[in-house]
Design a protein around this nucleic acid. Structure first.
Lengths: 247, 247
DNA sequence: GCAAAAGTGTTCCGACTACACCCATGC
DNA sequence: GCATGGGTGTAGTCGGAACACTTTTGC
């Protein structure tokens, strides 16, 4: 989104307002903790345009429905999840981004408001309705997508990484109690292996004081059992809006 | 934009799609360097709804016009500027945010895509068309605004401060050649007086190496003349996407 | 000379890096 | 015991904060 200098304006131009339908497209991320892979939810299109292509799950906004409600509706039609994080991403609205416009030249425009979500992989039960193809794809092995969805996904991925660095989204997606290693793995799979040394990550986070040791331990195979921690939202409050708390 | 848990879905509900008109509202900032004040451009409304109220300059999107084009059009109708920075902010689209909807219940919805701009105050010549009231208001002394424009403005203000910290927007708005004090004042008026010590700000930025001394000096009243610097976009390249370069 | 503004240097201290090392468990 | 993963400690280094100091101008 660079700056640019001003365009001349043709003030005598057509002044007819465009009519819009508004769509909502969701970039839904999840982390497969078993295999340490970042996943994104895709659905197979069964209608024109782009029939047979994978796309981001989306819908058109209905009467009386807010944008955010529409975003939640798409989610709840595709997966059953308890915990999630959702926020608006960006609005793509140039003419001719949707082939349905071309058919009816200067008819209805299709505008897409994209949302970005992060859900718990283990809990996210896909709703297979028998007809719709729907699947988690690992971010490093994606199919071709419909419309401009590759661009939207790229945008969402960037946002995810940023969010992770300076806001506590991770805890929306971790279970209530988690080990510091769980937290570390989550960061590592999203940001890449070499974002930080494990023991430094540990001490930095513990020093901040918004992770409380529950006292409980959990043993995973061999090795010393790990302490289970809990995110303390109140203790985190002073860090809101402070940049780069987590990295 | 916090996370929340899922809503139940009434799948038998009305499935009629909403029809939209799409508006673009601009949050246009500028810095009055003479008085060190952050300014925002407002226009007086001469039509219902909210007649007689100040509002952000906006327009409805026309046929064949992209969102960004519409944003540029609003700008160019209100001010004549050479240099500016523009980027999309957020899309507000709940039902009932515009009183025009209520009149025609379940008729056309009004959705607002907001854009955020930063322009040079000295060069920004307001286009007084004799009818429309249009004025720069200092951010610390604002009138009541129409619609949900206070919310949009607040959002834009937050984005401005963030942008300033990790991207070189400042140089889009400074003249080609500027003193380090000019740069410092710009940061100080937007971020608040106590964001950094002047001499530390100096040495930090100079060490980064993307400000080149042009050799020319400029004298402003008493005191030692200041060197004029130039922003070197190429030398800045490695810092792109690196957070917190400027603070 | 003196005030004012620009520009340089120095000291202190906290934070981050990169490790080495100790601890508790399964087998 | 020993491999495995959890957890603690430390020496070195870098960079920012605070502030003293020098330089160059106008008057």
């Amino acid at each position: 989104m660079p700056g640019r200098t001003q365009k001349p304006v043709d003030s005598s131009a057509k002044r007819i307002l465009a009519d819009f339908k508004v769509g909502v497209d969701n970039v839904i991320f999840s982390v497969d903790t078993a295999q340490n892979r970042l996943m994104v939810l895709l659905v197979m299109r069964h209608e024109e345009p782009f029939i047979g292509h994978w796309s981001l799950p989306g819908t058109l906004v209905r009467q009386g429905e807010s944008l955010e409600d529409a975003a939640y509706r798409v989610l709840s039609e595709k997966i059953r999840v308890e915990n999630l994080y959702l926020e608006q991403l960006y609005t793509f609205g140039g003419p001719n981004r949707d082939p349905r416009e071309a058919a009816t030249s200067y008819g209805t425009r299709y505008l897409s408001v994209s949302y970005f979500a992060l859900v718990r992989y283990a809990e996210a039960e896909l709703i297979a309705d028998g007809v719709t193809g729907i699947a988690w794809y690992p971010m490093n092995d994606l199919p071709k997508l419909a419309f401009d969805h590759e661009q939207i996904l790229e945008y969402g991925y960037r946002r995810l990484r940023n969010k992770l660095e300076y806001s506590p989204v991770a805890f929306e997606v971790l279970p209530e109690h988690f080990t510091l290693n769980d937290l570390y793995q989550l960061y590592a799979t999203i940001l890449g292996e070499n974002f930080s040394d494990y023991s430094n990550f540990r001490s930095r986070l513990l020093k901040l004081g918004f992770l409380t040791d529950t006292g409980a331990k959990v043993s995973r195979g061999a090795g010393r059992p790990a302490s289970l921690y809990r995110f303390d939202a109140e203790a985190f409050a002073p860090f809101k809006n402070k940049p780069l708390v987590f990295i």
